[in-house]
Nucleic acid binder design. Structure first.
Length: 517
RNA sequence: GCUCCCAUCGUCUAGUCAGGCCCAGGACGCCAGGUUUUCAUCCUGGUAACAGGGGUUCGAAUCCCCUUGGGAGUACCA
């Protein structure tokens, strides 16, 4: 048995690292795709190489308007930049496969001439029928060295017949002639050596009857032409790696290095994470909101859900890769410095929406109060609240530890901007006693006469007042909190009172006394 | 079915390549306690895993084999 060994190229300083992210524009890019792009990007930057975006739109039937722009916008939001691509241009342009038809035709003809590929005239219906009957016999139909002998192709038909068919415009495809009795040996950076017998492979279609190549052909030609050094892609491509290696062989080209990334799995149960899981489980699976142009179905995105792009990227980076240290928070530059394909795991990772929230919280509490305040300002304006930024900054400083997202700030801080309209019934039961109104009135009077109304002064005054009156600290403070906030939560009371001011503080006590008696 | 890939706490993972430092470490979540005028934060502690079975070895989470389980692919889709 012959052996085709695909050997690793030695990485040298002469060989520039060039990687590509090659999505097909059939819809929004989900987080698995973003992670693949991210790993490519980190790898490229780490090695001072180039990152290329190539759009694989060879299936015209699956074209979705807006998907291409969505992909580019999403990655830009994540901070993943390309050196060459649709928007960036580059010496290998065009970067859209549909615009490279002529190139593929040329190379495909080369393969036919060299005897590595052949014409096949079997109709879709015929093949479908063969598959069905094979299935009925509990076997699988494969277009391979066995079956190709009994099918309509340039290997079985006379040259004249083939010529006639081609001349008459009979639809045909070009298939790869898988060599017999070969052992394809592949070295994957993540998986190590993988060996496959060529008999188990089928004669994949290289060129479709619509005049466009399939993924397999276009991808090999483009990776070669664009001088891609490393192909970093999802594990779903591993089964077609033998074909790709054989294709490089057939062309006489040196293959790039391959790294097949483990898949992202559903948080519950099993299986590859899919676009449906997000809506089903209540978390986004897309970086940005997407509205399907045909069904108008809307899928939520991380951006619109209030995630910071750096938190999102940080989370994604650690899903399948780890630095080998206990560091969890990384800037993009730190990720670049730490990244290595050696530390990418082999097993699929279940996506954890809870930890994703935790990452966002970590990023949020590290932002400056000013930065958060300017985002929060927009939320306040939507609520119809006018507040000066000085106040907002202070409020943010008091409550940011309590939230995962900017939009949650309102729930934790609304009482800084509006007088409580109602009081929590449970807290009333627990904290509002018959003697409370008189105590609150006394407190109100004392506060009214307080010359300085900052947190420290309020704190000291209330403490002294409680002590001299002989009341219980808990009883007074909790009742007072009920009047200030409407319930039993929130930051330090004196901080709240100082920020809303003396007038509002007194007003809230009086209002509470009227409402609760 | 067939081909290929994978297998450590509920989840993400360290440790596996170079076997002993691991009756397995960290993080998220969860639970409890502490701090606090409340809630949250924070602090402390706890919960919880080497899928199973055979080998090899003085010694295995680590190496080998089998079983089981999971995943991917199996299109004129990518």
């Amino acid at each position: 048995m012959q052996t085709v060994a695909y050997l690793c190229k030695k990485m040298t300083f002469m060989n520039e690292v060039r990687v590509r992210f090659a999505p097909s524009p059939t819809g929004p890019l989900h987080i698995g795709g973003v992670r693949t792009a991210l790993y490519n990007y980190l790898f490229a930057r780490k090695h001072g190489g180039k990152m290329i975006l190539r759009i694989e739109d060879t299936d015209q039937t699956r074209f979705v308007p807006g998907a291409e722009a969505y992909i580019m916008d999403s990655l830009a939001w994540c901070g993943i930049q390309f050196d060459e691509g649709i928007r960036e241009g580059g010496v290998h342009a065009p970067y859209r496969q549909s615009e490279r038809k002529e190139i593929y035709t040329l190379y495909c003809e080369q393969l036919i001439r060299s005897g590595h590929a052949y014409y096949a005239f079997d109709s879709t219906e015929e093949l479908e029928h063969l598959r069905k009957s094979a299935e009925a016999n509990k076997t699988t139909f494969i277009y391979n060295s066995q079956s190709r002998k009994n099918l309509h192709n340039s290997l079985t038909l006379s040259p004249e017949t083939v010529e006639g068919y081609l001349a008459s415009g009979k639809p045909y495809v070009v298939r790869f002639l898988v060599p017999e009795k070969f052992e394809v040996v592949m070295d994957d950076i993540i998986r190590g050596r993988v060996v496959v017998k060529s008999e188990t492979l089928d004669d994949k279609v290289l060129f479709k009857s619509d005049g466009l190549p399939t993924y397999h052909l276009a991808n090999i030609i483009d990776d070669h032409l664009m001088q891609i050094s490393h192909v970093i892609r999802g594990e779903e491509w591993l089964p077609s790696l033998p074909l790709h290696v054989l294709l490089y062989q057939a062309f006489g080209w040196e293959a790039p290095l391959f790294a097949h990334l483990p898949l992202l799995l559903k948080p519950d149960g099993n299986g590859k994470l899919s676009k449906r899981d997000g809506d089903r489980l209540g978390f986004p699976v897309f970086p940005m909101r997407w509205e399907d142009p045909f069904s108008h179905e809307v899928s939520s995105g991380y951006r619109e859900s209030g995630y910071y792009p750096d938190a999102f990227v940080n989370m994604l980076a650690l899903l399948g890769w780890n630095p080998g240290t206990e560091q969890e928070l990384f800037t993009m530059q730190e990720l670049i410095d730490a990244f290595s394909l050696d530390r990418v795991g082999k097993a699929g990772s279940k996506f954890d929406p809870e930890k994703t929230k935790w990452f966002n919280h970590q990023y949020l509490i590290r932002k400056t109060n000013e930065e958060i305040a300017s985002d929060f300002q927009h939320v306040l304006i939507e609520k119809g609240i006018q507040a000066n930024s000085h106040l907002i900054i202070k409020v943010v400083g008091l409550v940011k530890e309590r939230v995962h997202f900017v939009k949650e700030l309102w729930d934790e801080a609304h009482f800084f901007f509006e007088t409580p309209e109602k009081y929590d019934e449970q807290v009333i039961q627990k904290r509002w006693k018959p003697e409370t109104p008189a105590q609150m009135q006394g407190l109100s009077t004392m506060l009214l006469n307080l010359p300085v109304f900052d947190a420290a002064a309020i704190d000291a005054a209330i403490k002294t007042w409680i002590e001299t009156s002989g009341y219980g600290m808990g009883a007074i403070m909790n009742a007072l909190r009920l009047l200030m906030v409407g319930t039993s939560k929130g930051p330090h009371l004196a901080d709240i009172m100082a920020l809303i001011g003396k007038e509002e503080t007194i007003l809230r006590i009086q209002k509470g006394l009227e409402t609760l008696h």
